[in-house]
């Protein structure tokens, strides 16, 4: 299998390798069962690049993201492969070294800021706490920097909002505060776990635009996880479509959106509302995602695939190059 991952690495990489993930596997082990959440994911990310990981719930996209900062429950998680972020071997770091990397080199924006912020501390305190931890400055200085951050993420009446508790802010402001928290120590890699899913549509686009401009300004590498095709198209430079714990199609965003090659990607795009579609009926993908308690020995999408053939069940499909920097894991592509 290792040769096929080498293809993936070269197929998707451009420029410097800020993030380098090789054959990442994540299993959740309990007494009764093992869940194969991520089954061999490889990719690289350069500074200033945005990778969008697109997939439905249960596809392993959030688990992949959390594995990048080893933010998974320790006792019952088995992580395999290698993860290098800005020169750090994330999976091999000692707990102390890991905590120095988290929040400073690599930071995360969570899906639901209401539950991701501590309810009994003010948002200003929670951000200043991070600055004090990583930047070795006084609390007064940290608070001043927090105020700057609030202005950077365009929180109105920033001074007053510093002393607000999470429940006192609107959803949009809470997510802006969460972004300020993530950016507080100028990370080189930003992980975003569906940061706009919990927001109103109008607020969603504001947050996306803000993230895009901050990403450009700070030159961060961003991994952005979403199930929303429109959001992915808006924010990402390159896309990885995830299904049953694997990347099944990767490549630059525009070519994939125009001409998807994997049947699952086709289905995903066809089931989404986009321009000039009035009067057409949306196509839903038949069936449901596979049970990840059994590691599939064939193409995971085969049971739902409209183009399934005997060859699809022969083994896990290898990566097939489908264009410049593109690949798809589908044996039927070569035959078409």
């Amino acid at each position: 299998m290792s040769s096929s991952f080498a293809v993936a690495t070269s197929a998707i990489s451009t420029g410097d390798r800020l993030v380098e993930v090789n054959d990442l596997t994540v299993r959740f082990v309990s007494k009764d069962t093992t869940i194969h959440a991520v089954n061999g994911v490889s990719f690289t990310l350069a500074a200033g690049e945005v990778l969008g990981i697109l997939g439905e719930s249960g596809s392993g996209k959030t688990v992949t993201l959390r594995a990048l900062m080893r933010l998974l429950p320790e006792g019952r998680t088995q992580i395999g492969g290698t993860v290098r972020v800005a020169g750090h071997d994330v999976l091999g770091l000692s707990p102390g070294a890991l905590s120095r990397v988290r929040g400073s080199t690599i930071a995360m924006i969570f899906q639901e800021p209401m539950t991701a912020l501590d309810p009994v501390y003010t948002v200003g305190y929670q951000i200043a706490e991070t600055v004090v931890r990583h930047e070795n400055v006084s609390w007064a200085e940290a608070r001043r920097r927090t105020l700057d951050l609030f202005e950077k993420v365009q929180i109105p009446s920033a001074q007053r909002r510093l002393d607000a508790y999470p429940h006192e802010l609107s959803g949009g402001l809470r997510q802006r505060a969460m972004i300020a928290l993530a950016l507080s120590c100028r990370p080189s890699v930003l992980l975003a776990d569906e940061p706009t899913t919990a927001l109103d549509a109008t607020v969603q686009i504001q947050i996306l635009l803000l993230l895009r401009s901050l990403q450009k300004e700070l030159g961060m590498g961003v991994v952005f996880v979403t199930h929303d095709v429109g959001v992915a198209g808006e924010i990402a430079d390159k896309l990885a479509i995830m299904y049953a714990g694997r990347f099944i199609e990767t490549g630059p965003v525009t070519p994939i959106m125009r001409a998807p090659r994997h049947p699952y990607t086709e289905g995903l795009l066809a089931s989404t509302v986009h321009g000039a579609m009035r009067g057409q009926r949306l196509k839903a993908i038949q069936g449901s995602p596979p049970n990840l308690e059994i590691l599939p020995a064939a193409c995971s999408f085969a049971p739902r695939c409209p183009r399934v053939a005997d060859i699809c069940l022969a083994g896990v499909p290898p990566e097939v190059p489908t264009g410049p920097d593109r690949m798809a894991r589908c044996v039927r592509i070569t035959q078409n």
Binding site: S99, R102, L117, D118, P119, V120, E129, R133
Partner: peptide, 24 residues
């Protein structure tokens, strides 16, 4: 709770995370 994951993601020490948890 998710906020405990988020506290770990900030990279603060285990002792400080405990302070947050106890306060809650």
């Amino acid at each position: 709770q998710e906020f405990v994951s988020a506290l770990h993601a900030k990279g603060i020490s285990r002792a400080r995370v405990l302070v947050h948890v106890v306060r809650n």
